[in-house]
Design a protein around this nucleic acid. Structure first.
Length: 365
RNA sequence: GUGGGCGUAGCUCAGCCUGGUUAGAGCGUCAGGUUGUGGCCCUGAAGGCCGGGGGUUCAAGUCCCCUCGCUCACC
């Protein structure tokens, strides 16, 4: 386990601007990590990752294990080298697939039916660590149990207990010293359970801490107190990662509560299907009102798509089903979100974060 | 020219045989949704002189006659 150091460079209330160190380099926070589930951010290539300002790109253990296989990725030099990406990488453990694919769960692990060929796939905390060590991302996540919300208390409680036990097993099993391992806090929308989970997970002394099981059906008003309870009981000198959350209002609220990094598929999913994130809110690019609009997606955006292309052109590409449409909007949405995180970081450092937060909430809340 | 088939939403078609609320579907269009990703998926809306005319009937997209258009086969 690589002992991540996390330097808090500036604070504004509970919000932090920081720098985290991994074996292969550091990253500045607050940080948005685009999702490349199967080894690529959809429609983008490694060259683009730099251009949109990404520093860490996600991969998914479950998907990569099935195709092309963890051994193969390892043989090819690990996820970063395999995908031609010289920035940092993080693999999600497959815990979210426990939520999204509904496998059989027992105390020892989970059994998936492969989404590719129907084969049964057995996953335990130890197996998740082994597979992720082969895939070789800079940061790996423990296998957790992510229940849907709302779920009955006994379901949340069982998920919490298993996540805690599995975290301990993963921690004990992890051996790669050039790779960081993050634990994951669960507990539904209950502040009490979140506090308990945060304390228990912290005692295992991970390199960083994921906060999982949020944005899975609850409202933002339900999410905030649970998130607040979690970050309040996590160590200051380790990065906190709110998993799967990426809408601008939640990003700014989570940063205000001391979260440092995020991932989300929303940016690329919205981009593929025609919605742009802009400084004035969501814009549906398929709408006819853009047909003769020569202006960029967002006049305040510095990305390459906004520098070159009009709304009229992008709408045309969507109307005619050109794959470039999805590419351009995915590119913009990722770049836009990373820029938003950079603006938050700057605002925390120069003392204007409260005003910045209010302005974001004014558009997105 | 003769015989057959087809004309219903922007497109592809159900419905006609056996007449009966306000004529439906898929796709497309328009408007929303999308949160640790299978290029999807979900919700809502707009949009019809049922080719035209005449007839039968209490009632016609539906039955009858005429007509126009498209199409196939045969001369």
């Amino acid at each position: 386990m690589f002992p991540v150091e996390f330097d808090v460079e500036a604070t504004s209330g509970r919000a932090r601007a920081g720098r985290a160190l991994t074996a292969r380099g550091d990253y500045e926070t607050p940080c948005f990590m685009p999702v490349g589930t199967r080894g690529a951010i959809r429609y983008l290539s490694a060259d683009d990752y730099h251009a949109v300002g990404a520093r860490i790109v996600l991969g998914n253990t479950y998907h990569l294990m099935l195709r092309p296989g963890a051994e193969l990725v390892g043989e090819m030099g690990g996820l970063g080298r395999f995908s031609g990406w010289d920035g940092l990488t993080l693999t999600d453990s497959g815990g979210f697939q426990v939520f999204s694919l509904g496998p059989k769960i027992d105390d020892d692990g989970v059994t998936f039916k492969s989404t590719y060929d129907g084969d049964l796939v057995r996953f335990t905390p130890e197996r998740a660590v082994d597979v992720q060590q082969m895939i070789g991302a800079d940061i790996q996540m423990v296998l957790d149990v992510c229940p849907a919300l709302p779920s009955p208390p006994e379901v949340i409680d069982l998920a919490l207990r298993r996540t805690g036990e599995w975290a301990q097993r993963a921690r004990a099993h992890h051996s790669r010293t050039d790779q960081s391992l993050f634990g994951i806090v669960q507990g539904g929308i209950s502040p009490e359970l979140r506090e308990r989970s945060a304390i228990h997970t912290s005692e295992l002394d991970f390199d960083g801490y994921g906060i999982g099981g949020l944005s899975v059906g609850e409202t933002r008003d339900e999410m905030i107190p649970a998130l607040s309870a979690a970050t309040a009981h996590l160590p200051v000198n380790r990065p906190r990662y709110l998993m799967g959350v990426g809408d601008p209002a939640s990003l700014v609220e989570a940063v205000a509560l001391g979260v440092d990094q995020f991932d989300c598929v929303m940016q690329t999913r919205l981009g593929r299907h025609g919605t742009a994130l802009t400084s004035t809110g969501k814009v549906h690019m398929k709408n006819v009102r853009h047909a003769r609009d020569d202006s960029p997606l967002d006049a305040a955006c510095a990305c390459a798509v906004c520098a070159r292309h009009s709304r009229a052109y992008i709408r045309h590409l969507f109307q005619t089903g050109e794959p470039t449409a999805a590419r351009l909007l995915s590119y913009h949405n990722v770049a836009w979100t990373i820029a938003l995180m950079g603006a938050m970081r700057a605002a925390i450092k120069d003392g204007t974060f409260p005003a910045f937060r209010a302005s974001v909430l004014g558009v997105w809340a």
